[in-house]
């Protein structure tokens, strides 16, 4: 007997007095991160005179750029209710690869393979795309959960990095990458422009293309997507490749930004990227959120990191505070999902 799922008559008119409350509840995941951002900004602006300046705002933008580039692809993955733990390692190996194919100074002791700049960039991009394809293959064809598959890929990419640099540090990258990573135009760092363009591109794809719609639908209800005749595996595979390529681009300009390519350079970016996406309000259960949320999340993390430097706080306490803020965001994320489900029922 299926009486449990039968005939609930919805009457929107009757609910009018509660409509505002219902709307606020359903928008909770978008509102909460924004409020967090405003609160943090207000707090640091009051606590430190050097925080709320135009110069410092530029600093924050630059500081969140690499995370932002990586988080674009991760947003696609999390929208599909999957995860990619290999992004930092892929960023690292791509940055190392582009340096590996560039002529280094004579004192750099790496057996590298110098090539023209464009070829180095293409090879590096091909490498990260290939690693993304391996993730996609493991997830969709073999059926390894993305959490485990990308955990393995994290090790594989770190292993390739280690083999390429063998404990050394490379400094040179192709001129185009150097320009994008470490120079400015009209006072605006190129890396901020790259991040902004990638975020914009991600937003356009997710909002205005058929593929973007499929990403949301697969994340919203994978079973239903399959029963609607969508090629779910193709979509899941695609987001894993997108994630790897975004991570690779982030790694390349990041290497230019930091001025060197070495092992474990990007390790902190894994948690930062996941935090940015989730703090922004994109649902870990998939189907809800987007690049807009990721941008808010990036600013929350950026303001928090930067602001804590301004208020002269114990740097060890800083780590703890970041952890607590992330926990709070996760609680809101799960809670918002539950509220929304209750409204929908």
């Amino acid at each position: 007997m299926t009486s449990g799922e039968s005939v609930t008559v919805a009457a929107p008119d009757r609910k009018r007095p509660h409509r505002l409350a219902a709307m606020l509840r359903s928008q909770m995941r978008n509102i909460a991160p924004f409020l967090t951002l405003i609160c943090l900004f207000g707090f640091f602006a009051a606590a430190s005179p050097s925080f709320a300046t135009l110069d410092n705002f530029g600093n924050i933008l630059t500081q969140i750029s690499v995370t932002g580039i990586i988080a674009v692809g991760l947003t696609f993955v999390i929208l599909c209710a999957e995860i990619d733990l290999s992004i930092a390692a892929i960023a690292n190996v791509t940055g190392i690869a582009v340096a590996y194919f560039t002529l280094q100074e004579s004192y750099v002791n790496i057996a590298n393979v110098p090539m023209p700049g464009w070829a180095a960039i293409l090879l590096a991009l091909a490498l990260c795309a290939l690693l993304g394809l391996v993730n996609a293959f493991g997830l969709t064809v073999i059926g390894i959960p993305s959490f485990i598959m990308t955990l393995a890929m994290m090790q594989i990419a770190a292993g390739i990095s280690a083999l390429l640099v063998r404990g050394q540090i490379a400094y040179k990258v192709p001129p185009l990458v150097t320009t994008l990573g470490s120079t400015s135009i009209g006072g605006i760092p190129w890396i901020v422009i790259v991040a902004a363009l990638m975020l914009l591109g991600g937003h356009l794809v997710l909002t205005y293309t058929r593929f973007g719609r499929y990403v949301y639908m697969v994340g919203g209800n994978r079973e239903a997507a399959e029963y609607s005749g969508l090629n779910v595996k193709l979509i899941l595979g695609s987001v894993m490749v997108i994630s790897a390529v975004c991570a690779g681009i982030g790694g390349m300009v990041g290497v230019a930004h930091f001025g060197s390519a070495q092992q474990n350079e990007f390790d902190t970016y894994l948690l930062d990227s996941i935090a940015a996406v989730v703090v922004g309000g994109t649902s870990l259960f998939g189907g809800r959120g987007g690049i807009g949320n990721t941008i808010v999340g990036l600013f929350v993390l950026g303001v928090l990191n930067n602001g804590l430097d301004h208020v002269n706080i114990d740097s060890f306490l800083k780590i703890l505070i970041r952890g607590l803020i992330l926990l709070a965001a996760l609680v809101i994320n799960v809670y918002a999902q539950r509220l929304r489900e209750r409204t929908a029922d």
Binding site: G220, N221, E223, A224
Partner: peptide, 13 residues
């Protein structure tokens, strides 16, 4: 169309 609507539809869309 499967026997369970939950498997077929996107309730939050």
């Amino acid at each position: 169309v499967p026997e369970s609507r939950r498997d077929m539809l996107f309730h939050q869309e």
